[in-house]
Design a protein around this nucleic acid. Structure first.
Lengths: 216, 216
DNA sequence: GATTGTGAAGAGCTTCACAGCT
DNA sequence: AGCTGTGAAGCTCTTCACAATC
């Protein structure tokens, strides 16, 4: 295992980009890829790519580049894609159902073992092969199935309570789609995906690009 | 208008957090909030909050804090939430449909003026009051309606072509849900939301927290 | 007494540039 | 010649700490 502790957040983000780029290269018969090429495909400078990949030891070969197969393997391992992650979904609204059906998740090692919703009308319905259970069964089921991850796709005012339940049932990390900050004990990983945030950033950048254009 | 050019990316991200936190405070009758309180609610240090808000000039009052109403107003303006953004959706699969129905978007000033899909089976269907149109009509409709933003929720191999069409039709920014890097001309804003990325980050962090726990 | 605004210090990230390997 | 690995430089972001203000 590489020294994954010394890897900074910006680096681990880019690692995902590299993995995505390599997956496109895999079927093209090429054996090696240079830091320059990988950088061009991901929007990263070549020196940065090399620095990032340095945590794998001397993986690259001067004059040749990085062997695509090896690099792909290492990246998958680093990012935890070499194992199956038992995952539960909480909140089977529009977003939740779309996530359950997202084919890429299943391909990448995420195994949805349960789905829950507060709304009694939806309980019992099947989505992507999974039967929606009532919230009351959350703790019991998560423990029983040894789920390691939880996806939260409930309204913001319910999100923190759901998060606490998930954690107390043994989940180690949460992917949070609710636009609110989760208060969680140290040692529990959280990643937030906030659509409103994303759109605000976009609106901000559009305005910026317009005023820049005018002033320059 | 504040000097929005000098605002760094980390800062503008936090601005969204502050806005989200303030929206919760608005109905609670409090008049002012301190940088400490706002920081606690968003996971940011108080000094950082003050530095971020400094772009608005001397908005805070020593001994008191920031007037919630004023701050809310300024943040909305900075992040472009004081105007309506005409937005089109491309790709009416699971994700696309969930986004169209996401109530928060409409509340925040995003006005979906059209939706497109490649799949002839879905063309003509109505989702959230919008009729899905065929791809062939994209350019014409975007121009006609003067759409400023595009949401891309198509498979990765189609994303770049869609992006080019959107840009040539006059869109100024793109929110990209496809797990691929878009090659766009300078001056066009892009924000990426990648679910696989997010889950990989989560898996990585969970592993990290486990190994840390063991080694300490 | 509480809290802001900010210069200065500190920490972290990125880019450069080049020796060394194939 | 082409490319990696990396020390050093440069840059950006965060935190500290305190005078100024209410």
């Amino acid at each position: 295992m590489p020294n994954s502790d010394r890897i900074s957040k910006p680096t681990s983000r880019r690692m995902s980009l590299y993995l995505r780029a390599l997956q496109l290269q895999l079927n093209q018969g090429k054996a090696a890829i240079s830091s320059k090429e990988l950088g061009d495909q991901t929007g990263v400078k070549d020196a940065q790519v090399r620095k990032d990949l340095a945590c794998f030891g001397s993986l690259g070969r001067p004059g040749v580049g990085y062997r695509i197969g090896d690099l792909h393997h290492q990246l998958r391992r680093l990012l935890g894609m070499d194992q199956t992650w038992k995952t539960v979904l909480v909140g089977a609204g529009n977003i939740g159902r779309a996530l359950l059906a997202y084919p890429r998740f299943r391909n990448e090692g995420f195994d949805f073992v349960a789905a829950f919703d507060h709304n009694k009308k939806d309980v019992g319905k099947k989505i992507a092969g999974l039967c929606i259970q009532p919230m009351e069964e959350l703790k019991k089921t998560v423990k029983q199935k040894h789920a390691q991850m939880g996806l939260i796709a409930v309204p913001p005012d319910a999100a923190n309570k759901v998060a606490q339940s998930l954690v107390s049932a043994g989940v180690r990390g949460i992917l949070n789609f609710a636009p609110i900050r989760l208060d969680l004990p140290k040692g529990i990983a959280v990643v937030n995906v906030d659509f409103t945030d994303a759109l605000e950033q976009l609106a901000f950048e559009i305005r910026l690009s317009i005023t820049e254009g005018k002033s320059v």
